[in-house]
Design a protein around this nucleic acid. Structure first.
Lengths: 202, 202
DNA sequence: CCAATTCTGGACAAAATAATCCAAAACGTA
DNA sequence: TACGTTTTGGATTATTTTGTCCAGAATTGG
Protein backbone atom coordinates (compact mmCIF):
# COMPACT_ATOMS: atom_id res chain seq x y z
CA UNK A 1 0.00 0.00 0.00
CA UNK A 2 2.14 2.79 1.20
CA UNK A 3 4.80 3.86 3.58
CA UNK A 4 5.58 1.44 6.45
CA UNK A 5 3.26 2.84 9.02
CA UNK A 6 4.90 5.37 11.27
CA UNK A 7 7.57 5.22 13.96
CA UNK A 8 7.82 3.05 17.06
CA UNK A 9 4.69 3.99 18.92
CA UNK A 10 5.55 2.24 22.14
CA UNK A 11 8.97 3.81 22.40
CA UNK A 12 7.51 7.21 21.74
CA UNK A 13 4.95 6.64 24.47
CA UNK A 14 7.66 5.73 26.92
CA UNK A 15 9.47 8.94 26.18
CA UNK A 16 6.25 10.80 26.73
CA UNK A 17 5.73 9.00 30.02
CA UNK A 18 9.16 10.03 31.13
CA UNK A 19 8.54 13.66 30.33
CA UNK A 20 5.07 13.77 31.84
CA UNK A 21 6.40 12.04 34.94
CA UNK A 22 8.90 14.78 35.43
CA UNK A 23 6.81 17.81 34.64
CA UNK A 24 3.17 16.86 34.72
CA UNK A 25 0.64 17.59 32.02
CA UNK A 26 0.20 21.35 31.98
CA UNK A 27 3.88 22.18 32.24
CA UNK A 28 4.80 19.98 29.30
CA UNK A 29 4.50 21.66 25.92
CA UNK A 30 3.86 19.89 22.66
CA UNK A 31 7.15 21.22 21.32
CA UNK A 32 8.99 19.51 24.12
CA UNK A 33 7.06 16.30 23.56
CA UNK A 34 7.90 16.32 19.87
CA UNK A 35 11.54 16.82 20.57
CA UNK A 36 11.79 14.09 23.20
CA UNK A 37 9.59 11.60 21.38
CA UNK A 38 11.44 12.38 18.19
CA UNK A 39 8.26 12.65 16.21
CA UNK A 40 7.00 15.32 13.90
CA UNK A 41 4.11 17.48 14.93
CA UNK A 42 1.77 16.12 12.35
CA UNK A 43 2.67 12.53 13.12
CA UNK A 44 1.94 13.17 16.75
CA UNK A 45 -1.48 14.62 16.11
CA UNK A 46 -2.28 11.96 13.52
CA UNK A 47 -1.28 9.13 15.80
CA UNK A 48 -2.54 10.23 19.17
CA UNK A 49 -5.15 12.87 18.54
CA UNK A 50 -4.08 15.72 20.75
CA UNK A 51 -1.95 16.41 23.78
CA UNK A 52 -4.61 15.32 26.19
CA UNK A 53 -5.30 12.05 24.39
CA UNK A 54 -1.59 11.36 24.31
CA UNK A 55 -1.41 11.97 28.02
CA UNK A 56 -4.25 9.56 28.71
CA UNK A 57 -2.71 6.88 26.55
CA UNK A 58 0.61 7.29 28.31
CA UNK A 59 -1.02 7.28 31.71
CA UNK A 60 -2.92 4.12 30.97
CA UNK A 61 0.18 2.35 29.76
CA UNK A 62 2.13 3.46 32.78
CA UNK A 63 -0.31 2.48 35.51
CA UNK A 64 -1.11 -0.83 33.86
CA UNK A 65 2.51 -1.88 33.77
CA UNK A 66 3.18 -0.52 37.20
CA UNK A 67 0.31 -2.41 38.78
CA UNK A 68 1.22 -5.52 36.85
CA UNK A 69 4.72 -5.67 38.25
CA UNK A 70 3.48 -5.21 41.80
CA UNK A 71 0.88 -7.93 41.44
CA UNK A 72 3.54 -10.30 40.22
CA UNK A 73 5.43 -9.77 43.44
CA UNK A 74 2.36 -10.18 45.56
CA UNK A 75 1.52 -13.51 44.00
CA UNK A 76 4.89 -15.12 44.49
CA UNK A 77 4.71 -18.42 46.36
CA UNK A 78 5.66 -18.75 49.99
CA UNK A 79 4.20 -17.25 53.13
CA UNK A 80 1.67 -14.62 52.17
CA UNK A 81 2.95 -11.97 54.53
CA UNK A 82 6.45 -12.43 53.24
CA UNK A 83 5.19 -11.76 49.77
CA UNK A 84 3.60 -8.54 50.96
CA UNK A 85 6.73 -7.37 52.72
CA UNK A 86 8.85 -8.46 49.83
CA UNK A 87 6.74 -6.57 47.36
CA UNK A 88 7.56 -3.39 49.23
CA UNK A 89 11.28 -4.03 49.28
CA UNK A 90 11.37 -5.11 45.67
CA UNK A 91 9.41 -2.06 44.68
CA UNK A 92 11.84 0.17 46.52
CA UNK A 93 14.64 -1.33 44.45
CA UNK A 94 13.04 -0.62 41.10
CA UNK A 95 15.28 1.11 38.63
CA UNK A 96 12.81 3.68 37.54
CA UNK A 97 12.68 5.06 41.06
CA UNK A 98 16.34 5.89 41.26
CA UNK A 99 16.31 8.57 38.62
CA UNK A 100 13.91 10.75 40.56
CA UNK A 101 11.66 10.86 37.55
CA UNK A 102 8.61 10.39 39.68
CA UNK A 103 5.48 8.34 39.29
CA UNK A 104 3.19 9.43 36.53
CA UNK A 105 0.19 8.04 38.39
CA UNK A 106 0.77 10.02 41.55
CA UNK A 107 1.62 12.98 39.43
CA UNK A 108 -1.67 12.78 37.62
CA UNK A 109 -3.61 12.51 40.86
CA UNK A 110 -1.66 15.42 42.26
CA UNK A 111 -2.35 17.59 39.28
CA UNK A 112 -5.93 16.66 38.50
CA UNK A 113 -7.35 15.44 41.76
CA UNK A 114 -10.70 14.05 40.80
CA UNK A 115 -11.82 16.85 38.59
CA UNK A 116 -10.91 15.00 35.44
CA UNK A 117 -13.19 12.07 34.76
CA UNK A 118 -10.88 10.29 32.35
CA UNK A 119 -7.84 10.52 34.56
CA UNK A 120 -9.87 9.33 37.52
CA UNK A 121 -11.24 6.42 35.56
CA UNK A 122 -7.77 5.25 34.57
CA UNK A 123 -6.15 5.56 37.97
CA UNK A 124 -9.16 4.17 39.81
CA UNK A 125 -9.37 1.19 37.54
CA UNK A 126 -5.72 0.31 38.01
CA UNK A 127 -6.00 0.82 41.75
CA UNK A 128 -8.95 -1.52 41.86
CA UNK A 129 -7.07 -4.28 40.11
CA UNK A 130 -4.13 -3.92 42.46
CA UNK A 131 -6.38 -3.80 45.47
CA UNK A 132 -8.02 -6.98 44.42
CA UNK A 133 -4.74 -8.88 44.29
CA UNK A 134 -3.74 -7.36 47.58
CA UNK A 135 -6.88 -8.45 49.37
CA UNK A 136 -6.45 -11.93 47.99
CA UNK A 137 -2.98 -12.24 49.47
CA UNK A 138 -4.13 -10.87 52.79
CA UNK A 139 -7.01 -13.33 52.84
CA UNK A 140 -4.55 -16.10 52.23
CA UNK A 141 -2.42 -14.82 55.09
CA UNK A 142 -5.40 -14.87 57.37
CA UNK A 143 -6.49 -18.34 56.36
CA UNK A 144 -3.00 -19.61 56.97
CA UNK A 145 -2.91 -18.10 60.41
CA UNK A 146 -0.26 -15.52 59.66
CA UNK A 147 -2.42 -12.68 60.84
CA UNK A 148 -3.56 -12.03 64.34
CA UNK A 149 -7.32 -11.99 64.68
CA UNK A 150 -7.49 -8.28 65.40
CA UNK A 151 -5.82 -7.37 62.13
CA UNK A 152 -8.04 -5.46 59.75
CA UNK A 153 -7.33 -6.34 56.10
CA UNK A 154 -8.72 -3.10 54.80
CA UNK A 155 -6.41 -1.03 56.93
CA UNK A 156 -3.52 -3.25 56.00
CA UNK A 157 -4.29 -2.77 52.34
CA UNK A 158 -4.63 0.97 52.75
CA UNK A 159 -1.32 0.99 54.53
CA UNK A 160 0.31 -1.00 51.77
CA UNK A 161 -0.86 1.39 49.08
CA UNK A 162 0.09 4.35 51.17
CA UNK A 163 3.55 2.92 51.68
CA UNK A 164 4.00 2.54 47.95
CA UNK A 165 3.04 6.15 47.49
CA UNK A 166 5.40 7.15 50.27
CA UNK A 167 8.28 5.30 48.65
CA UNK A 168 7.55 6.92 45.32
CA UNK A 169 7.55 10.37 46.85
CA UNK A 170 10.71 9.64 48.81
CA UNK A 171 12.33 8.57 45.57
CA UNK A 172 11.23 11.71 43.80
CA UNK A 173 12.50 13.73 46.74
CA UNK A 174 15.90 12.25 46.04
CA UNK A 175 16.38 9.58 48.70
CA UNK A 176 19.09 7.04 47.98
CA UNK A 177 18.27 3.57 46.85
CA UNK A 178 19.60 2.21 50.12
CA UNK A 179 17.41 4.53 52.13
CA UNK A 180 14.40 3.42 50.13
CA UNK A 181 15.19 -0.21 50.77
CA UNK A 182 15.59 0.30 54.50
CA UNK A 183 12.46 2.33 54.65
CA UNK A 184 10.51 -0.40 52.87
CA UNK A 185 11.91 -3.07 55.15
CA UNK A 186 10.99 -1.03 58.15
CA UNK A 187 7.47 -0.58 56.88
CA UNK A 188 7.23 -4.34 56.65
CA UNK A 189 7.50 -4.52 60.40
CA UNK A 190 4.00 -3.19 60.74
CA UNK A 191 2.63 -6.43 59.33
CA UNK A 192 3.40 -8.36 62.47
CA UNK A 193 6.13 -9.47 64.77
CA UNK A 194 6.81 -12.61 62.82
CA UNK A 195 9.21 -10.78 60.56
CA UNK A 196 12.37 -12.14 62.05
CA UNK A 197 11.26 -15.74 62.16
CA UNK A 198 10.09 -15.74 58.59
CA UNK A 199 13.10 -13.99 57.27
CA UNK A 200 15.35 -16.55 58.89
CA UNK A 201 13.31 -19.37 57.45
CA UNK A 202 14.37 -18.56 53.90
CA UNK B 1 -0.29 59.13 53.91
CA UNK B 2 -2.58 57.31 51.58
CA UNK B 3 -4.95 54.51 51.11
CA UNK B 4 -5.03 51.88 53.90
CA UNK B 5 -2.55 49.45 52.44
CA UNK B 6 -4.20 46.79 50.42
CA UNK B 7 -6.34 43.77 51.22
CA UNK B 8 -5.75 40.92 53.63
CA UNK B 9 -2.55 39.47 52.33
CA UNK B 10 -2.61 36.37 54.47
CA UNK B 11 -6.14 35.45 53.52
CA UNK B 12 -5.36 35.94 49.88
CA UNK B 13 -2.33 33.72 50.22
CA UNK B 14 -4.42 30.99 51.78
CA UNK B 15 -6.79 31.10 48.88
CA UNK B 16 -3.85 30.86 46.54
CA UNK B 17 -2.52 27.88 48.49
CA UNK B 18 -5.84 26.16 48.15
CA UNK B 19 -5.93 26.65 44.42
CA UNK B 20 -2.31 25.69 43.83
CA UNK B 21 -2.83 22.62 46.01
CA UNK B 22 -5.61 21.47 43.79
CA UNK B 23 -4.17 22.23 40.38
CA UNK B 24 -0.48 22.81 40.70
CA UNK B 25 1.42 25.76 39.34
CA UNK B 26 1.26 25.48 35.58
CA UNK B 27 -2.40 24.58 35.40
CA UNK B 28 -3.45 27.56 37.48
CA UNK B 29 -4.00 30.74 35.51
CA UNK B 30 -3.64 34.22 36.87
CA UNK B 31 -7.26 34.92 36.04
CA UNK B 32 -8.31 32.06 38.27
CA UNK B 33 -6.03 33.25 41.02
CA UNK B 34 -7.45 36.75 40.87
CA UNK B 35 -10.96 35.48 41.06
CA UNK B 36 -10.35 33.14 43.99
CA UNK B 37 -8.10 35.52 45.90
CA UNK B 38 -10.55 38.30 45.21
CA UNK B 39 -7.80 40.68 44.26
CA UNK B 40 -7.38 42.89 41.24
CA UNK B 41 -4.78 42.07 38.69
CA UNK B 42 -2.64 45.07 39.40
CA UNK B 43 -2.85 44.54 43.15
CA UNK B 44 -1.63 41.03 42.67
CA UNK B 45 1.34 42.04 40.63
CA UNK B 46 2.13 44.96 42.89
CA UNK B 47 1.98 42.88 46.02
CA UNK B 48 3.56 39.64 44.98
CA UNK B 49 5.59 40.37 41.88
CA UNK B 50 4.43 37.75 39.45
CA UNK B 51 2.76 34.39 39.37
CA UNK B 52 5.92 32.54 40.19
CA UNK B 53 6.80 34.75 43.14
CA UNK B 54 3.28 34.36 44.45
CA UNK B 55 3.63 30.61 44.18
CA UNK B 56 6.88 30.62 46.12
CA UNK B 57 5.43 32.81 48.86
CA UNK B 58 2.43 30.53 49.14
CA UNK B 59 4.59 27.43 49.16
CA UNK B 60 6.81 28.80 51.88
CA UNK B 61 3.85 29.70 54.04
CA UNK B 62 2.29 26.32 53.52
CA UNK B 63 5.27 24.12 54.31
CA UNK B 64 6.28 26.23 57.29
CA UNK B 65 2.90 25.88 58.92
CA UNK B 66 2.61 22.25 57.99
CA UNK B 67 5.96 21.36 59.49
CA UNK B 68 5.23 23.45 62.53
CA UNK B 69 2.09 21.56 63.39
CA UNK B 70 3.83 18.21 63.03
CA UNK B 71 6.70 19.26 65.22
CA UNK B 72 4.28 20.31 67.91
CA UNK B 73 2.89 16.80 67.97
CA UNK B 74 6.31 15.24 68.02
CA UNK B 75 7.37 17.26 71.02
CA UNK B 76 4.42 16.44 73.22
CA UNK B 77 5.40 15.00 76.61
CA UNK B 78 5.15 11.32 77.36
CA UNK B 79 6.89 8.30 75.90
CA UNK B 80 8.79 9.34 72.82
CA UNK B 81 7.54 6.54 70.61
CA UNK B 82 3.98 7.33 71.56
CA UNK B 83 4.53 10.85 70.39
CA UNK B 84 5.77 9.57 67.07
CA UNK B 85 2.84 7.24 66.58
CA UNK B 86 0.46 9.87 67.78
CA UNK B 87 1.82 12.43 65.37
CA UNK B 88 0.84 10.12 62.53
CA UNK B 89 -2.68 9.57 63.79
CA UNK B 90 -3.21 13.21 64.59
CA UNK B 91 -1.95 14.16 61.18
CA UNK B 92 -4.35 11.73 59.54
CA UNK B 93 -7.19 13.48 61.34
CA UNK B 94 -6.31 16.95 60.10
CA UNK B 95 -9.18 18.85 58.59
CA UNK B 96 -7.35 20.02 55.53
CA UNK B 97 -6.86 16.42 54.45
CA UNK B 98 -10.51 15.58 54.26
CA UNK B 99 -11.36 17.88 51.40
CA UNK B 100 -8.99 16.10 49.02
CA UNK B 101 -7.34 19.38 48.28
CA UNK B 102 -3.94 17.82 48.40
CA UNK B 103 -0.64 18.90 49.86
CA UNK B 104 0.97 21.83 48.16
CA UNK B 105 4.41 20.62 49.19
CA UNK B 106 4.07 17.22 47.59
CA UNK B 107 2.43 18.84 44.66
CA UNK B 108 5.36 21.15 44.16
CA UNK B 109 7.83 18.30 44.35
CA UNK B 110 5.73 16.30 41.94
CA UNK B 111 5.56 19.09 39.45
CA UNK B 112 9.05 20.52 39.67
CA UNK B 113 11.17 17.66 40.91
CA UNK B 114 14.49 19.28 41.61
CA UNK B 115 14.77 21.32 38.50
CA UNK B 116 13.64 24.45 40.21
CA UNK B 117 16.21 25.78 42.63
CA UNK B 118 13.82 28.00 44.59
CA UNK B 119 11.21 25.33 45.06
CA UNK B 120 13.86 22.87 46.14
CA UNK B 121 15.31 25.33 48.60
CA UNK B 122 11.95 25.90 50.26
CA UNK B 123 10.89 22.27 50.51
CA UNK B 124 14.35 21.08 51.52
CA UNK B 125 14.62 23.67 54.21
CA UNK B 126 11.29 22.73 55.73
CA UNK B 127 12.11 19.05 55.49
CA UNK B 128 15.37 19.67 57.31
CA UNK B 129 13.65 21.38 60.20
CA UNK B 130 11.14 18.60 60.52
CA UNK B 131 13.83 15.96 60.27
CA UNK B 132 15.73 17.62 63.05
CA UNK B 133 12.79 17.43 65.43
CA UNK B 134 12.14 13.89 64.40
CA UNK B 135 15.68 12.75 65.07
CA UNK B 136 15.55 14.41 68.45
CA UNK B 137 12.47 12.45 69.48
CA UNK B 138 13.96 9.23 68.21
CA UNK B 139 17.14 9.89 70.15
CA UNK B 140 15.05 10.41 73.24
CA UNK B 141 13.28 7.14 72.57
CA UNK B 142 16.59 5.37 72.32
CA UNK B 143 18.00 6.91 75.47
CA UNK B 144 14.88 5.90 77.35
CA UNK B 145 15.15 2.35 76.16
CA UNK B 146 12.06 2.39 74.01
CA UNK B 147 13.93 1.24 70.96
CA UNK B 148 15.54 -2.09 70.42
CA UNK B 149 19.24 -1.85 69.77
CA UNK B 150 18.96 -2.90 66.13
CA UNK B 151 16.64 -0.06 65.26
CA UNK B 152 18.11 2.40 62.80
CA UNK B 153 16.96 5.97 63.50
CA UNK B 154 17.59 7.11 59.96
CA UNK B 155 15.37 4.45 58.48
CA UNK B 156 12.74 5.15 61.08
CA UNK B 157 12.79 8.80 60.19
CA UNK B 158 12.62 8.05 56.48
CA UNK B 159 9.69 5.79 57.16
CA UNK B 160 7.95 8.47 59.17
CA UNK B 161 8.27 11.03 56.40
CA UNK B 162 7.25 8.51 53.82
CA UNK B 163 4.18 7.63 55.87
CA UNK B 164 3.16 11.27 56.01
CA UNK B 165 3.47 11.47 52.26
CA UNK B 166 1.48 8.29 51.91
CA UNK B 167 -1.30 9.63 54.08
CA UNK B 168 -1.41 12.83 52.09
CA UNK B 169 -1.69 10.96 48.83
CA UNK B 170 -4.31 8.63 50.25
CA UNK B 171 -6.28 11.67 51.30
CA UNK B 172 -5.99 13.23 47.89
CA UNK B 173 -7.05 9.93 46.37
CA UNK B 174 -10.25 10.25 48.35
CA UNK B 175 -9.84 7.87 51.27
CA UNK B 176 -12.21 8.43 54.15
CA UNK B 177 -11.08 10.05 57.33
CA UNK B 178 -11.60 6.79 59.18
CA UNK B 179 -9.49 4.89 56.68
CA UNK B 180 -6.72 7.45 57.09
CA UNK B 181 -6.82 7.08 60.85
CA UNK B 182 -6.67 3.31 60.72
CA UNK B 183 -3.89 3.42 58.19
CA UNK B 184 -1.89 5.76 60.40
CA UNK B 185 -2.46 3.60 63.44
CA UNK B 186 -1.36 0.56 61.53
CA UNK B 187 1.79 2.30 60.39
CA UNK B 188 2.55 2.99 64.02
CA UNK B 189 2.96 -0.72 64.57
CA UNK B 190 6.21 -0.66 62.69
CA UNK B 191 7.78 1.29 65.53
CA UNK B 192 7.82 -1.71 67.80
CA UNK B 193 5.69 -4.25 69.54
CA UNK B 194 5.18 -2.13 72.61
CA UNK B 195 2.19 -0.49 71.01
CA UNK B 196 -0.47 -2.25 72.97
CA UNK B 197 1.13 -1.78 76.32
CA UNK B 198 1.69 1.89 75.80
CA UNK B 199 -1.74 2.52 74.45
CA UNK B 200 -3.30 0.91 77.44
CA UNK B 201 -1.18 2.93 79.79
CA UNK B 202 -2.95 6.16 78.81
C1' DC C 1 8.60 2.26 -13.04
C1' DC C 2 4.30 4.10 -11.66
C1' DA C 3 0.69 5.03 -8.53
C1' DA C 4 -1.43 5.25 -4.20
C1' DT C 5 -0.86 6.25 0.32
C1' DT C 6 1.33 7.71 4.34
C1' DC C 7 4.86 10.22 6.74
C1' DT C 8 7.48 14.54 7.39
C1' DG C 9 8.60 19.37 8.40
C1' DG C 10 7.83 24.06 8.15
C1' DA C 11 4.65 27.66 7.89
C1' DC C 12 0.46 29.38 9.64
C1' DA C 13 -3.84 30.49 12.23
C1' DA C 14 -6.15 30.75 16.49
C1' DA C 15 -6.53 30.70 21.23
C1' DA C 16 -4.97 31.24 25.84
C1' DT C 17 -2.22 33.40 29.03
C1' DA C 18 1.15 36.39 31.43
C1' DA C 19 2.24 40.84 32.27
C1' DT C 20 1.94 46.09 31.52
C1' DC C 21 -0.41 50.54 31.08
C1' DC C 22 -3.50 54.07 32.34
C1' DA C 23 -7.08 56.60 34.21
C1' DA C 24 -10.23 56.90 37.93
C1' DA C 25 -11.58 56.02 42.56
C1' DA C 26 -10.43 55.57 47.55
C1' DC C 27 -8.30 57.00 51.57
C1' DG C 28 -5.40 59.13 55.18
C1' DT C 29 -3.38 63.39 56.60
C1' DA C 30 -2.62 68.08 56.91
C1' DT D 1 -11.66 70.22 52.42
C1' DA D 2 -7.76 69.48 49.46
C1' DC D 3 -3.54 67.12 48.38
C1' DG D 4 -0.62 63.25 47.69
C1' DT D 5 -0.32 58.51 47.55
C1' DT D 6 -2.01 54.02 46.75
C1' DT D 7 -5.25 50.79 45.24
C1' DT D 8 -8.31 49.21 41.72
C1' DG D 9 -10.08 47.39 37.37
C1' DG D 10 -10.43 47.44 32.57
C1' DA D 11 -8.05 47.75 28.30
C1' DT D 12 -4.08 46.44 25.94
C1' DT D 13 0.14 44.23 24.49
C1' DA D 14 3.32 40.56 23.98
C1' DT D 15 4.28 35.91 24.38
C1' DT D 16 3.46 31.28 24.53
C1' DT D 17 1.14 27.34 23.05
C1' DT D 18 -2.11 24.44 20.79
C1' DG D 19 -3.67 22.68 16.72
C1' DT D 20 -4.18 22.85 11.40
C1' DC D 21 -2.68 23.29 6.65
C1' DC D 22 0.02 22.23 2.79
C1' DA D 23 3.45 20.65 -0.21
C1' DG D 24 7.12 17.56 -0.86
C1' DA D 25 9.51 13.20 0.27
C1' DA D 26 9.42 8.31 1.19
C1' DT D 27 7.84 3.73 0.66
C1' DT D 28 5.31 -0.32 -0.69
C1' DG D 29 2.58 -3.02 -4.17
C1' DG D 30 1.30 -3.78 -8.80
Amino acid sequence: MARPKEFDQEKALRKAISLFSQQGFAATSTDELMRVMDVGRQSMYDTFGDKRALFLRALEMYVTESVQSIIEELEKPGPALSAVRNALVTFAARNDLSNAEGCMGLNAISEFGHRDADVTRITRSAARVQRHALMRVLARAKSQGELSSDADPDSMADFFESTLAGIRMAAKAGKSRRALRNLAAFAGRAYGTTVDREDRRR
